[in-house]
Design a protein around this nucleic acid. Structure first.
Length: 576
DNA sequence: GCCGTTTTCGGCCCGACTGTTTTCAGTCG
C-alpha cells in the first residue's frame, strides 16, 4: 500500500521531490525493517515505528482492519493502473506523464506506443525527435527485460567489472557499491565507483567490456551502459581524494544518505559524493575514507549491510549498532557436500583440507539422502563414507572436528528418508524441502514442524526453498514455525548460496524476540564454495541477528555439546 | 506526510546527464 501510495502521489503532485512521496517511501522502509506484528498494533503504537506518523498509522490500521483506505481509493480512481505503469519507463517521469495525458490523451503504454508511431510527441513543446526516440528505445528495452537482477547473477558480474577497471592505468581504487555492497538479494543496477585522476581511459575500458551492449549516457565522469543481458551498469570516476565520500554516496541506501546529509546540515556542513565540507567556507572536512566522513559527523563507521535507514544512525550515535558478522566470525559449517552427492564435486579430503585452511573448527559432511532423485546417496555408500571420515579425522588430529551428517528430504507429509535407527547413527541431520513446493500453507507448515519434531533432526535447511528471482518460497505459518523451532530446539539454517540466501530476512527479524538458533552454512557443492558462509554471515547481519543466537560463532566445545543436545533430549520434546 | 536540546510550524539531500533550451527542466540515483 505504501509503495502504491508513493507512486500515486508522485503522479498526483507531479514533483519527484514531493515531500509526501518521500514520506511514504520512508514509511515503506520503516515497515520493511520492522520486526513486529502490525495486525495487533494500535494506531498510537504504529506511530512509534520509524517514518510512521499519525496519518500513515491510520492508513495502515484501516488497511488491516477495514480492508480499504479512502485516500488510496481516491488516488486509484484518478490514476488508473495503466497510467502508473508508465512510471516504470526509464526517462519518463510524472511531469511527462501529466502532459502526455492532458495534451494527447495518452492513458497507457499502448497509447504511448501508438503516439510514438504517429510521431505525435516530437511536436509537443519540450519534447523533440530525440525524446521520442529515447522513449521508444526505453520501451523496447522494457519489453526485453524487467525487474531486478538476482544477486547470484549481478554480484559475479560486478566483481568482473571491478577487476577489469582496476587494471586500467591510473586507477587507484575500484569497488562495486549500491545495493550489491549492501548485500541486497536483488540489484536494480550495478554501481561501480573508480578513483582516478584520469577518467577517460576508465570510460573507454567500460564500453569495451565483453558484456557491453549499449550506451545509455556518457559524460566526463559518469557512464551508464546496458549489458547484453540488459542489466544497467553505472560507472562513476572520482578524484582519489574523494573516494571515501563517493563510496558512501554510491552505496546508499538513499534513505541512509538523506539522513547523513541532514545530519551534516545540522552541523553546518554539506555532504556530497565529493566531500563533507563546511557550509559557509566550502572547506573540505572529510572525503578520503568513509570512516573519516562518519567520524566528522560524530558516528562510528557503519557497515554497508546496515545502511537501510532502519534506525541504524540513531543506534550508531548511541554506540549500539547491531554486530555485523563476517566470514571470519564463522567457526563451523554444517551443510557441505562432496562428490558422493551426484550434484557436487570434489573428494572428502579436498573439502576437509580447504575447511582447515579456512580455520573451520567443526565441519559436518552432509550428502543428499536417498530420497532425492538422481543425486541422493544410499545406505552402503554412507556407511563407507563414515569409516572414511573417521580415517581422515585420525589423520588430521584435532585441527578440526569432523561430523558425519546427512541432508534429509522432508516429504509431503513431513516424512524423512531411511528409518529412525539409521538416521540416529548420523552425528548431524539437517532436513530440507526439495519438492512439493505448491502445497498450501497449512500442509507446508505441518510437514516442516513434523520434521522438526523428529529426534534425529538438528536443523532445517533452506526453510523457504526459494530461488531468488526464479522460484518463490513455500507458504508457511511463520509464527508456528518459530514456536516449533524454539520448543524442539531445532536450528534454522542461513544458507549462504547466493541463489538461495534462505532463511529469509523476515523470518530472522521475526525471530529476534525469540530463543531461536541459527546456523550459517555454505551448502558447498565444491570445496571452493566453502567461502559461501561469508554470504550467510552478511545476510543474517542484514536482519540484525544477534551473534549469540548463531551457533556458527560459538567455540568448538559449545558447538559439539549443542550437536548432542537434541539427541539426548529426544524423549522429552513436547508434542504440539 | 514526518519531525523537533534551536522549532508543534516550517523546514525537508545533492549533483550528473540529456534534450531542448539561450539559462533550465526533467529524470535518475
Amino acid at each position: 500500500m505504501l509503495e502504491e501510495l508513493g507512486e500515486l502521489t508522485l503522479l498526483d503532485e507531479g514533483d519527484p521531490q514531493a515531500f509526501r512521496v518521500r514520506a511514504y517511501e520512508s514509511a515503506y522502509h520503516g515497515i520493511e525493517s520492522f520486526a513486529g506484528d502490525l495486525r495487533s498494533m494500535t494506531v498510537t503504537a504504529l506511530t512509534k515505528i520509524e517514518g510512521i506518523g499519525k496519518s500513515t498509522a491510520e492508513k495502515i490500521h484501516a488497511l488491516l482492519h477495514v480492508g480499504t483506505v479512502p485516500k488510496l481509493e481516491d488516488l486509484r480512481k484518478k490514476h488508473p493502473k495503466s497510467v502508473v505503469a508508465m512510471l516504470k519507463i526509464p526517462g519518463v517521469g510524472p511531469k511527462a506523464i501529466a502532459r502526455l495525458r492532458k495534451e494527447i490523451g495518452v492513458e497507457s503504454i499502448d497509447d504511448l506506443k501508438k503516439a510514438i508511431a504517429d510521431h505525435k510527441l516530437r511536436d509537443m513543446k519540450g519534447f523533440g525527435a530525440k525524446s521520442e526516440e529515447k522513449i521508444e528505445k526505453a520501451l523496447v528495452r522494457m519489453a526485453a527485460f524487467h525487474g531486478r537482477t538476482p544477486i547470484s547473477v549481478a554480484l559475479p558480474l560486478a566483481q568482473r567489472i571491478v577487476r577489469e577497471l582496476s587494471a586500467v592505468p591510473g586507477v587507484v581504487h575500484a569497488e562495486y557499491c549500491g545495493s550489491l555492497r549492501r548485500f541486497s538479494e536483488t540489484a536494480g543496477d550495478i554501481d561501480v565507483v573508480v578513483a582516478s585522476k584520469d577518467p577517460e581511459p576508465v570510460m573507454e575500458r567500460a564500453v569495451g567490456l565483453s558484456m557491453f551492449a549499449e550506451v545509455i549516457a556518457r559524460g566526463s565522469t559518469k557512464t551508464s551502459f546496458l549489458t547484453k543481458k540488459g542489466i544497467q551498469v553505472d560507472v562513476r570516476v572520482v578524484e582519489p581524494d574523494s573516494i571515501g565520500a563517493a563510496l558512501l554516496y554510491f552505496t546508499g541506501s538513499k534513505g541512509h544518505n538523506i539522513k547523513l546529509r541532514q545530519r551534516a546540515l545540522d552541523r553546518k556542513m554539506t555532504l556530497s559524493e565529493y566531500s563533507l565540507a563546511e557550509l559557509e567556507t566550502g572547506k573540505v572536512v572529510a572525503s578520503k575514507t568513509e570512516e573519516e566522513v562518519y567520524a566528522a559527523l560524530g558516528l562510528p563507521w557503519i557497515h554497508p549491510v546496515l545502511r537501510e535507514d532502519a534506525g541504524e544512525i540513531d543506534l550508531a550515535e548511541k554506540g549500539k549498532l547491531p554486530h555485523v558478522m563476517l566470514g571470519s566470525d564463522v567457526r563451523s559449517d554444517f551443510h557441505v557436500h562432496t562428490g558422493l552427492s551426484r550434484d557436487a564435486r570434489g573428494t572428502l579430503e579436498e573439502v576437509v583440507d580447504m575447511a582447515i585452511a579456512r580455520g573451520c573448527e567443526v565441519l559436518a559432511i552432509t550428502e543428499h539422502a536417498e530420497g532425492l532423485p538422481m543425486t541422493g546417496v544410499g545406505r552402503d555408500a554412507l556407511v563407507e563414507q563414515r569409516a572414511r571420515l573417521a580415517a581422515v579425522q585420525a589423520a588430521v588430529g584435532d585441527k578440526i572436528s569432523l561430523l558425519h551428517g546427512i541432508e534429509l528430504n522432508i516429504g509431503a507429509k513431513g516424512e524423512l528418508d531411511y528409518d529412525h535407527e539409521f538416521r540416529m547413527l548420523f552425528d548431524f541431520c539437517l532436513a530440507s524441502i526439495h519438492d512439493h513446493f505448491d502445497l498450501d500453507r497449512e500442509a507446508q507448515t505441518k510437514r516442516v514442524i513434523r520434521a522438526m519434531e523428529d529426534p534425529s533432526v538438528q536443523m532445517i535447511g533452506h526453510l523457504s526453498a526459494r530461488m531468488i528471482g526464479a522460484r518463490p518460497g513455500v507458504e508457511l505459518d511463520m509464527e508456528a514455525i518459530l514456536a516449533a523451532a524454539e520448543r524442539t530446539g531445532t536450528a534454522l539454517e542461513v544458507n549462504g548460496g547466493l541463489p538461495r540466501l534462505d532463511v529469509t530476512l523476515d523470518v530472522m527479524r521475526a525471530a529476534r524476540s525469540r530463543d531461536v538458533l541459527f546456523v550459517l552454512t555454505s551448502d558447498a557443492h565444491l570445496a571452493s564454495e566453502l567461502d559461501r558462509v561469508d554470504n550467510a554471515a552478511l545476510h543474517a547481519s542484514r536482519a540484525w541477528v544477534d551473534p549469540a543466537h548463531v551457533v556458527s560463532t560459538w567455540d568448538r566445545k559449545r558447538v559439539l555439546d549443542w550437536v548432542k543436545k537434541k539427541r539426548v533430549n529426544a524423549a522429552s520434546i513436547p508434542v504440539a
